[in-house]
């Protein structure tokens, strides 16, 4: 009985992760749809649009990639722009590893491939209350990946349609990702952590005056985490003194 539970447990965790990816699916599908539409309008084939989503799976940097390719930029220029935009992901892996129960070597490549902003944010919000099962993370990332690739395929094959008509649905879809991040913040919120949130948000907002969004976000994220690490140390030393 215990053996059976041990075997079925990763599958159950993966299934639960897949179910909990619903909010990511709702957020990703319209953006991926737009990506498919824009890519085909830029002169690429639907297969090329799907190929980019299948191989790169990196949201905003895919839009930049297609725009630069359509403008005739050189391969190395496109490549360096994409990698610079994704540099913030350097910090996601180590942060996620601190919340995982264990990281099996054979799952690590799959977990890393699916580690987008939204998957990371959802996992970290969940991980604030309990350690994460790697299979749960894999289920979550799989749902997001399927929605991203599926949305791209739909957009590339159907072209601009109902999601771009500016109606109620299109307007509601615009707010899905901000709403998701807000809900995740509320889930992971701890009163003592407010300086982390305030500094990260404030520095990002200020940074956007001088830098592109992805650079401002990286600097804001690092500034917030820096404050969090210093506060924790201060609290530890205070506790040690009392």
């Amino acid at each position: 009985m215990n053996l059976e539970r041990a075997i079925s447990s990763p599958w159950r965790a993966a299934g639960q992760g897949l179910r909990e990816s619903l909010s990511l699916v709702v957020g990703y599908a319209p953006i991926a749809f737009s990506f498919g539409v824009i890519t085909v309008q830029s002169g690429l084939t639907p297969w090329q649009a799907v190929g980019i989503s299948l191989l790169v799976f990196a949201g905003a940097s895919q839009f930049v990639m297609v725009a630069m390719m359509a403008a005739g930029s050189g391969g190395l220029t496109v490549l360096s722009a994409v990698l610079m935009m994704n540099l913030r992901h350097l910090f996601y892996g180590p942060a996620l590893a601190t919340r995982l129960v264990v990281l099996p070597r054979r799952l690590a490549p799959w977990l890393a491939f699916g580690l987008t902003d939204e998957v990371f944010a959802t996992a970290m919000a969940k991980g604030a209350s309990r350690p994460l099962e790697p299979a749960w993370c894999l289920g979550l990332a799989s749902g997001a990946y399927l929605a991203w690739v599926g949305g791209t395929a739909l957009g590339a094959s159907m072209g601009a349609g109902w999601a771009n008509d500016g109606g109620y649905v299109a307007q509601a879809l615009d707010f899905v990702l901000p709403a998701l991040f807000l809900a995740l913040l509320a889930q992971a919120w701890r009163r003592a952590r407010w300086p982390v949130v305030a500094v990260a948000a404030g520095v990002t907002l200020l940074g956007m005056v001088w830098w592109p969004g992805h650079v401002a976000m990286l600097i804001g994220m690092l500034a917030g985490a820096l404050v969090g690490s210093r506060r924790s140390r201060t609290r530890c030393s205070r506790e040690a003194m009392t």
Partner: peptide, 15 residues
């Protein structure tokens, strides 16, 4: 690293 998740969520909200 422990504080990075919350900081990333806050930065993503602003963005």
């Amino acid at each position: 690293l422990g504080a990075l998740g919350l900081a990333a969520i806050a930065a993503l909200i602003v963005l």
